[in-house]
Design a protein around this nucleic acid. Structure first.
Length: 180
DNA sequence: CGACTTTGACCCGCGC
DNA sequence: GCGCGGGTCAAAGTCG
């Protein structure tokens, strides 16, 4: 099945109605608003510990600092900055859903009370430090929980890739349209 | 050879 | 203070 680069939720069966509202790539539902719809996570027997996933947590600044020792000291004095976080569930055989962005995996941890590990990904765009966590639910192994942290400050690469031929055509047609 | 994944070690916050 | 759990780092390995 060819995943849709624009609407990643369409390439996966949405596991819960609220999950659709929380799709971060849905252009009609910006993340700022989606963050208000996190209540779907609470009170459900999911096998996933939602609280740490959804609650805002301190985020370090100055991640481009060179040197591990410098990094350690910066972590000790990290500022408390709350970033938008939003989670949604998809029913998919793949752990990582294709949301159109490129991600680099930087860690994986076994999670308590869960037989599946949690994976940590970072957006590969150099100016974008959006992160996401991916974890498969214990009670329903066909459901994958994806938690995004932050908002992309660059266009979706796959979307731009798909649109570029179209944009070229528009540019070619622009002078013609001006004549009409 | 660059981009990416794997994985053990490390760090930090929090509860006891 | 100590141990635990979660998050991140970074070296080594893999892949195209």
């Amino acid at each position: 099945m060819e995943p849709s680069p624009h609407f990643p939720c369409l390439s996966h069966q949405i596991a819960s109605p609220s999950a659709a509202r929380n799709c971060p790539s849905d252009p009609y539902n910006p993340p700022e608003q989606q963050a208000e719809h996190l209540s779907f996570a609470s009170g459900e027997p999911s096998g996933v510990d939602w609280a740490p996933l959804l609650l805002p947590r301190p985020t370090q600044e100055g991640e481009d600092e060179a040197g591990r020792e410098k990094e350690r000291s910066s972590r000790r004095t990290r500022k408390v900055v709350s970033r938008p976080r939003f989670a949604f569930r998809t029913r998919s055989a793949n752990d990582v859903l294709d949301d159109g962005y490129r991600w680099r995996k930087y860690g994986q941890k076994a999670v308590k009370n869960s037989m599946y590990p949690r994976s940590y990904y970072r957006c590969t765009h150099h100016t974008c430090n959006v992160k996401k966590q991916v974890q498969r639910m214990t009670e329903d192994t066909s459901i994958v929980v994806t938690t995004y942290e932050g908002v992309h400050n660059h266009p979706c690469e796959k979307l731009m890739e798909a649109l570029s031929p179209l944009l070229k055509q528009v540019q070619l047609l622009a002078p013609v349209m001006g004549m009409l």
